[in-house]
């Protein structure tokens, strides 16, 4: 029993060795005129298919990369639009006029709002801690209302913007000096509806 098995194994090894010794033919530049069934043509077809698949994979990867880059660009653009919507504006002491250096911040919101008719905004007015805290609620409200008037004048529907005031009750920065006060005299913006996802103008 053992001898028989060993002889069969030797024969099998010999056959395999004989086959592997055949030199691989060069791939034909053109497909064979007739689909003759032989090992060479099978290999060639396989290699061609593999090459095509690789090319397709590479193309797909490139496309995906391009799409990802585009998505990333869009994402960045959306984030930028969102930042523009969210950006607070700041006020001078005891004033509710829109400061010249703050107008650009508000102007940048307009195209975003125009491109996203579904967006609703809440504008919250705040003051610094100086002044009467009761009067400061009124002052904060006027700041929010001044911002809304500015945006309405640039074509944004008033109905899309609600205004409210926290006076001095919710400071953005703690402190009892101008550096804190100047950050606290502000109007903040909150999306209350729409913008999901935000459309880039």
């Amino acid at each position: 029993m053992r001898r028989f098995h060993i002889s069969r194994l030797i024969m099998l090894v010999a056959v395999v060795a004989a086959c592997s010794k055949k030199p691989p033919p060069a791939p034909p530049p053109a497909p064979a005129p007739a689909p003759t069934v032989n090992q060479d043509s099978i290999d060639a077809a396989r290699r061609a298919a593999e090459a095509a698949a690789t090319r397709a994979r590479e193309a797909a990867a490139a496309a995906a990369a391009a799409a990802a880059a585009e998505a990333s660009r869009m994402e960045a653009a959306r984030a930028d639009a969102r930042r523009k919507l969210d950006a607070a504006v700041y006020f001078d002491y005891d004033m509710d006029e829109i400061r010249a250096d703050q107008a650009a911040t508000l102007d940048a919101k307009v195209p975003v709002l125009n491109a996203n008719a579904d967006i609703r905004l809440r504008i919250s007015g705040h003051t610094d801690e100086r002044g009467s805290d009761e009067y400061n609620i009124a002052l904060g409200q006027r700041r929010a209302a001044a911002v809304r008037r500015y945006l309405v004048a640039r074509g944004v529907s008033e109905a899309r913007m609600e205004v409210e005031s926290f006076g001095e009750q919710r400071p953005a920065m703690q402190g009892m000096d101008e550096s804190a006060w100047s950050r606290n005299r502000r109007a903040e913006f909150t999306l209350t509806a729409g913008g999901n996802p935000i459309r880039v103008p």
Partner: peptide, 8 residues
């Protein structure tokens, strides 16, 4: 009381 959205 005081009330308003802009002036009070």
């Amino acid at each position: 009381f005081a009330a308003g959205t802009d002036g009070f």
